[in-house]
Design a protein around this nucleic acid. Sequence first.
RNA 1: CUGGGUGUGGCGCAGUUGGUAGCGCGCUACCUUGGGGUGGUAGAGGCCGUGGGUUCAAGUCCCGUCACUCAGACCA
Length: 481
Amino acid sequence: MAKQDKKNVEAITSMDEDFAQWYTDIVKKAELISYTSVKGCMVIRPYGYAIWENMQRILDGMFKETGHENVCMPMFIPESLLQKEKDHVEGFAPEVAWVTHGGNDKLEERLCVRPTSETLFCEHYAQIVHSYRDLPKLYNQWVSVVRWEKTTRPFLRSREFLWQEGHTIHATAEEAIEETEKMLNVYTKFCVDSLAIPVVQGKKTESDKFAGAVSTYAIEALMHDGKALQAGTSHYFGDGFAKAFEIQYAGKDNKLQYPHQTSWGVTTRLIGAIIMTHGDNNGLVLPPAVAPIQAVIVPAAMHKPGVLEKATELYQQLKDAGIRVKLDDSENSPGWKFAEYEMKGVPVRVEIGPRDIEANQCVIVTRHNGEKTSISLENLIESVHEKLQEVHDGLYQAALENRNKRTYQCRTIDEINQALNEKGDGFIEAMWCGEEACEDEVKAQTGAGSRCIPLEQKQISDVCVCCGKPAKHMVLWGKAY
RNA sequence: CUGGGUGUGGCGCAGUUGGUAGCGCGCUACCUUGGGGUGGUAGAGGCCGUGGGUUCAAGUCCCGUCACUCAGACCA
């Protein structure tokens, strides 16, 4: 038994036993991050950063395709600038970091380290937008921001995190609303096609929307343990920021008017979403589209004549075919390598040894289900492509099944508590009257807060789950990260 | 911010009534190894998060402080 079993158990805490500890084990043992001496600030190690680079590459392509340009704003915001939009500053003030000194001299006005860059974009738009001909501006930036969080967790809630923030400005409200919806769809497509994570699109309730927004849209994902994670947001600002920052343009009719704005973002939190959606007790499981290594070649008996040569040949073939492949010819035993790359979530493993070479074949193992297949070396490239697709589809299906299994439709608060207690945490679909008091009451009594008002509505009942008055929307509720 | 846990070689841990540190993994060298963390021999490596206190004597007791972590409240 026991040797392997024991070592595996020691390597990582079981997710059923302690999900939070399992998560922490994975981020450390898969070498995604390392802690630093500043609370909430982490080193994203090469393997973790490579995942982010792949996400960036894919998303950036999607942004460019929808007409966006990249820019880069400074990281400091003067206090007076942050103050200009009232709701915005109230929302962010409690968690900003301040720069008060330059060298030894106290600054005239303190500078905040950007928690988000709406104010900087607005200041800039006021300078460059004068005519309807200047619109729209479709900007995006890839930067880090700082929010002084109290409780921190790697990827899920760190004090500094990497993200992209899109900021666009349009002549009309219609255009801006269309942009908001378009980017929500871009995020959805990215999560489904690249991360194999199913998401629910919805609108945030008044109490939950972004500080300064008219409306906030979000995609919500359900983690393996039944907790919800906000995976991306897209905000419609109307002309509120434009008015606060005095951005005006002359229309075709030569009348001055206020433009309409949006912003949208996803962060390195998506790496946390991948871990908690696809990971298992052997470690990380990465969706092929963003896996730094898509296939790893493990030679068996690699010092026997011809083995390493053959393995190198396979490596070159796969590499030439555009697959991110690694040949591990280190002195570690094959078994050690198997466990290592499982921990790191490599989607496909290719085993090649003397027996295989003799039969002109190799063994392919898929990470998500451990299935082993012998395939002819003639079909190596096609087979690996097929297997990568299989992993992606398998991951998406499993995540979808978990979500469906953990989505409960409830008519009363008692039903919510019953569902959560009997079946475990998950999404609750229940009706809502639209009153904030009821929203708060549901959370107080069940622990499940409102995640969003799904764009795809269902009629669970006619009355509010809390007060019994006529319902306005179906809300998706859940305990959140 | 509230409440719990933890801080001892690179990592994970032990350290009994206070007497000046021990184990496993990893690491280095050599040998061994055919398919799920291969086996062996010999080495290197720590003043116990940090500041103070009690004591003849502190990893061990007391106070402070910092960090990590877990559960809440808040947020991407």
